[in-house]
Design a protein around this nucleic acid. Structure first.
Length: 173
DNA sequence: AGCAAGATCGGT
DNA sequence: CCGATCTTGCTG
């Protein structure tokens, strides 16, 4: 069943591992697709020098300062839409980048495959008719590693283990 | 007003 | 390794 908004009210570092194994559901003209979330990355607060919130509240990142449960999308390199979920409380800018779902490894590939663009900015995951997250009762093994492609942030931010990866499925032997 | 850089991807 | 492609936030 669909996750309600309170799931996203919690701190991003709590929500991120909890998102792994859940299903990202997209409904597009009566066609529904569902993919397991396999990799996410946390952007936490105004101090995080890797986060868009580091410049304070701007037109682009405003939704990050809202309560959890909303979608934050933005365009990178002029061509790829990045899908994020806002978490935490009001005026506590946090976002979780969806980096991988089963079948599509990479944030740009996800939005291209699911046809997600700027029109999803601010979409409410608890009430939307076209995107939401469902519980799948999986308890995946989780690995934490540093975030990818944010060397510009410097220490300690570029070393924080805020990238959460679902461990590869157990092998039969 | 102008500019450099970017939470990326795909092809050489 | 490099180019695509354009928004953003900073500088002047």
């Amino acid at each position: 069943m669909r996750l309600d908004r309170s799931f996203f009210y919690r701190d991003a570092l709590t929500v991120a591992p909890d998102l792994l194994g859940k299903a990202l559901v997209r409904k597009d003209k009566e066609r529904i697709s569902s993919h397991t979330i396999s990799e996410v990355e946390v952007y936490l607060g105004i101090e995080d020098q890797a986060s868009h919130a580091r410049f304070g509240k701007t037109a682009r990142n405003a939704v990050m300062f809202d309560q959890g449960g909303l979608v934050y999308v933005y365009l990178i390199y002029g061509m790829h839409w990045m899908l994020n979920f806002v978490t935490g409380q009001n005026d506590q800018p946090q976002a979780i980048l969806i980096r991988g779902i089963t079948g599509f490894e990479g944030p740009g590939k996800i939005t291209r495959a699911l046809r997600i663009d700027h029109s999803f900015y601010g979409e409410n995951l608890a009430t939307s008719e076209r995107i939401w997250v469902e519980n799948r009762n999986l308890k995946p093994e989780i690995t934490r590693v540093p975030r990818f492609g944010i060397d510009y942030a410097g220490e300690p931010w570029k070393s924080m283990p805020w990238r959460y990866i679902m461990a590869p499925p157990p092998r039969n032997s």
